[in-house]
Amino acid sequence: MSTFDRAAELPHDLTDDLVDGLGVVRATPLGGGDTASAFRLETARGTLFAKTMADPPAGMMAVEVAGLHALREHVPEFLGVPEVVRWTERGIVQEWIEEAPDRRPPGTEEQCGRGLAALHRARGTAFGGLDPDLPGRIGSFEVDLSPTQDWAAFLLDRRIRPLLRDAVRSGRIAAHAEDLLEELAPRAEELAGPQEPPTLVHGDLWAGNRLVDVRGRNWLIDPSAYWGHREVDIAMMLLFGGFGADCLAAYDAEHPLAPGWQERVPWYQLPPLLVHAVRFGGGYGDAAVRALLRLRG
Results as ranks from 00 to 15, higher is better:
228 G>E: 11
190 E>F: 08
162 P>C: 09
204 D>I: 08
239 L>R: 08
186 P>G: 03
246 D>C: 00
170 S>N: 11
253 A>M: 05
175 A>T: 13
217 R>A: 13
213 D>R: 12
156 L>D: 12
192 A>W: 02
172 R>F: 01
181 L>G: 05
191 L>Q: 05
263 E>Q: 15
227 W>T: 12
243 F>C: 04
254 E>G: 02
208 G>Y: 09
174 A>G: 11
189 E>V: 15
257 L>D: 11
193 G>C: 09
244 G>M: 01
157 D>Q: 13
162 P>M: 10
256 P>C: 07
158 R>P: 07
208 G>K: 11
192 A>D: 03
244 G>A: 14
165 R>A: 15
227 W>L: 13
163 L>M: 14
249 A>K: 05
241 G>L: 08
220 L>Q: 10
223 P>E: 07
166 D>P: 00
161 R>V: 15
242 G>K: 05
222 D>H: 08
196 E>I: 13
249 A>C: 00
195 Q>F: 05
159 R>Q: 14
248 L>N: 00
194 P>D: 15
178 E>Q: 14
177 A>F: 03
257 L>S: 06
219 W>P: 12
199 T>E: 13
261 W>L: 11
176 H>E: 15
177 A>C: 15
222 D>Y: 07
195 Q>Y: 07
234 I>K: 02
158 R>H: 12
166 D>R: 14
211 L>W: 06
252 D>I: 00
248 L>R: 03
204 D>E: 11
236 M>N: 09
